[in-house]
Design a protein around this nucleic acid. Structure first.
Lengths: 127, 127
DNA sequence: TTGACATGAAACCATTTGGTTTCGTATAAT
DNA sequence: ATTATACGAAACCAAATGGTTTCATGTCAA
């Protein structure tokens, strides 16, 4: 199959802050486990497990070089996230448009943009 | 406080598939808990807990209407995700980066460019 | 050859997570 | 006034998660 059966998906993989930091580190350059774990207040083994989860999600690739295993970022699976996100973009673009129209308009009687943006809890004004 | 102290962050909130489905449902329209839970093979209480987590992350807002609590999508916190993602976009936006990184590397120990280029699946060109 | 280094696997542990059932309370309907 | 509906809180539970320490193996260096 072209689609590897992933034990961990991208959403779950990036849920952990440590793993997001690891990805960022690997964005700079390919690195072996020991160097990576040097950046974290936990054991090398713990970092190694995070790397396994990232690898399961396809977000890092390993390469053996002598006695070390170097990991590098593989950003492609993040496209799934991007696609997912794009569905919701209209929701906040909508809100930005509301604000934009207010700012560009001279009409002060068209209502308060903040209530339109739902930044004000309706319950505050109703009860 | 204008900034809600979030017990759950966005990354963790969207890690669960059920919660992502809930968000999608609420994208259509504001809905009460019972209706939402009707779409899932679990108890209303379980869904209610998912809604609490989404609310903690700021992704849904509640509104009391009579004896029901209606939930609606609040997409704005997803902007944090978008910002995070944007950092990684350069990695897939230009597929030549793969080759570029090889050319710029001083790696003496192997890692030929062809194996690196296998990362690009020819069948992916339609995606 | 011997010793040091790099790493993953395994066993273990505490906490978190995702679910359940039960119960109390507020609101709506008869 | 009584009953039914909508909901969250609480107590509970199994499994997953994120960490640890220990051990075995492969590789490099002296």
């Amino acid at each position: 199959m072209s689609v590897p059966s992933q034990k961990h998906d991208v959403f779950q993989a990036i849920a952990d802050p440590t793993r997001r930091q690891v990805l960022k580190l690997l964005g700079e350059q390919e690195l072996p486990v020991t160097v990576i774990s040097g950046h974290f207040p936990m054991s090398r083994t713990a970092v190694s497990k995070h790397l396994r989860i990232l690898a399961d999600a396809g977000l890092v690739k390993e390469r053996k070089v002598g006695r070390e295993t170097r990991y590098r970022l593989e950003a492609e699976p993040l496209m799934e996230l991007k696609r997912w996100l794009s569905y919701y973009e209209r929701y906040w673009e909508n809100k930005l448009n509301v604000l934009k129209r207010f700012v560009e308009s001279d009409d002060e009687e068209g209502g308060n943009p903040f209530s339109a943006l739902e930044l004000i809890d309706p319950k505050d004004t109703n009860k």
